[in-house]
Design a protein around this nucleic acid. Structure first.
Lengths: 352, 352
DNA sequence: TTGTACGCGTTATCAC
DNA sequence: GTGATAACGCGTACAA
């Protein structure tokens, strides 16, 4: 179309057109310094006429920073993370920061290349959901002086700021609820990832058992495989849980309770229960975690543990930005937001 | 921690340390030009020792491009788009391109700032899901010579490359299926957005009616509100559809069929049907669009129209990259992938 | 108020 | 094979 593959206009182009220096144009464009209103208007008019757009790379180069943040997630298909992205994107844009997004898919190699990209672009800070396979990428990031905050999952050994969820407490609350409403024995469906969130949830289940006089050893743990590969299309989680549930729940005592590590897993259990003719919640109680968008609309509605994603995302952005702006460097703190149990029809509500 | 808030090492730092010129270091680092193996190794070693990371902004400045693509979506919480993001991210990374992601939330102002950001960063190309409120932002982008491809929704008046879905055909197939299996009358639940995808789907429904000797006017269209604001948390879509369905489906003839614009809407219908005591598919047939991750696991499984997101995302990236690399500039084409009807338990399967 | 000089980190084009 | 030199587009000091 336009035969001119020429470079876009620069401040120098504007300067020549209005008979001024690049310097003057620079100050006019950005309002700093002092310019006569006359030339100011002339410059702005010419800039508009040319459709001038400042070159972010040039600005970043001279300023040493591009006002950008890195956001590293494991899997954007997870509703929790897609909502996190929304919040973080909105809030950082509001504060004038660009976002570098990377999806690692629980894969260490992808984490390394994400760190690499952030380093190259000299991001001002990073918000990270680690796959917890290794701290190495993040140590590298922090060693380069990039402020960083973890979301949801702490680092393994290195101390780093964290804003997350008290999964242990959430699982505790869920378990207590199930036990008190008469569900027993309990079966836990969890991802087979070696991550703290899983461990915390299992710990919460155990603590609740003890608190209610049940033997934690009697709780069976079922691990559902998760792909750490580069091919994570969506439907495997409920699918795997379904297949497992078909086997595990074929002959169970009436009143058994399933605690699922996330609502996708619970979904697989639902289908298995339907096919096995188990009616919920009497024959089988199910509790999920995450309150995914569909959970309230299932039949019966899924009892689940809801995490305040909005608050968490906002807290992460705010912390990073404050840290960037003030340069303050306190000892890392761990803030965990309390999740909230959403009781719906998939669990019994009366003590028997 | 590190008292030195100093700038990271540059090729000049390396050059000094090994007693060479910046130029030589540059070539050694990137393997181009000719260097003696000896100095090459010395330089690489020193670079590793210093933890040198090239400055992307500087490189982008001199090269005039940063090997980056822009991806503009409306709403990352929509499973279709989060999957699209995954695919696009993976594929563009594989080809050495960075991704600039922007979420517009169906909001024109956000689209404009997205274009602005892409222009500032001199992205090499853009993959865009327009809100179809106006072509203005995209005209601006294209006027600046940025190759661009639309996904899913074409522009209003401007001609632009498109890779999308044949929504009309998908809705046609779904409707024919419902009619042939005895569902009548039909009710359509759609988002209240004025976008081509909605129009296409409705057109497909009408065409199918005509083909089967039913009067299109007898199909009632229910519009479900969508927020165009900056506060789109997730659960409104099924919620609104549910509320509407409670009213609309209270007294309907046995065998009525609902065609929903997406599976979230269908989810709201499910809940209403349950509460109204309508059994699916006999009393009420439901068909969705999108095959969201949960749809196969509902009870009954949701009949829905599945779009090949992977292929679409890959096609978009490939087109953009080829366009960028070759600079070729053919007349824009529209490629629409055929969606595929997934028949499950929410619709009857036998002719009555 | 405006212009001059210089630097940001990198690549490219030439010499040597 | 290697080293000057210039250039990318912009911001900051300073001088005029």
């Amino acid at each position: 179309m336009t035969p001119e593959a020429a470079r876009p206009p620069t401040i120098k182009t504007i300067a020549q057109n209005v008979g001024m220096t690049a310097n003057t144009v620079s100050r006019a464009l950005r309002g700093s310094g002092s310019i006569s209103p006359t030339t100011r208007d002339k410059i702005l008019a010419e800039a508009r006429r040319l459709g001038y757009v400042p070159n972010a790379a040039a600005r970043a180069l001279v300023l040493g920073s591009a006002n950008s943040l890195g956001l590293v997630m494991t899997n954007p298909s997870n509703p929790f993370y897609s909502e996190l992205f929304s919040v973080v994107e909105r809030r950082s844009r509001k504060d004038g920061y660009m976002l570098h997004l990377a999806a690692t898919e629980e894969n260490l190699q992808n984490e390394e290349s994400a760190v690499d990209a952030m380093l190259r672009w000299r991001v001002d800070g990073a918000i990270v959901v680690s796959s917890q396979g290794s701290d190495a990428p993040w140590q590298r990031l922090m060693a380069n002086g990039v402020p960083m905050i973890c979301v949801n999952r702490p680092l393994l050994e290195v101390d780093c700021e964290l804003v997350g969820i008290d999964y242990e407490q959430g699982a505790y609350d869920a378990t207590v609820h199930m036990l008190d409403s008469g569900h027993w024995p309990l079966v836990v469906f969890e991802e087979d990832l070696e991550i703290t969130t899983v461990h915390s949830r299992i710990a919460g289940v155990h603590r609740a058992c003890v608190a209610r006089g049940r033997a934690p050893e009697d709780v069976s743990i079922v691990r559902i495989e998760s792909p750490r590969e580069n091919n994570s299309t969506l439907p495997w989680q409920p699918q795997s849980a379904y297949a497992e549930a078909r086997r595990r729940l074929a002959h169970i005592p009436r009143g058994t309770g399933v605690i699922a590590g996330n609502d996708f897993l619970a979904l697989g259990v639902y289908r298995a229960a339907n096919e096995l003719g188990l009616s919920m919640p009497e024959d089988l109680g199910v509790c999920g975690q995450g309150d995914h968008p569909f959970s309230a609309f299932l039949n019966p509605g899924l009892t689940t543990v809801r995490a305040p994603v909005q608050e968490i995302g906002a807290a992460a952005v705010d912390w990073i930005i404050q840290r960037v702006r003030t340069g303050s460097d306190h000892a890392p703190a761990h803030r965990r937001f309390a999740p909230e149990l959403q009781v719906r029809g998939s669990t019994m509500t009366v003590n028997r």
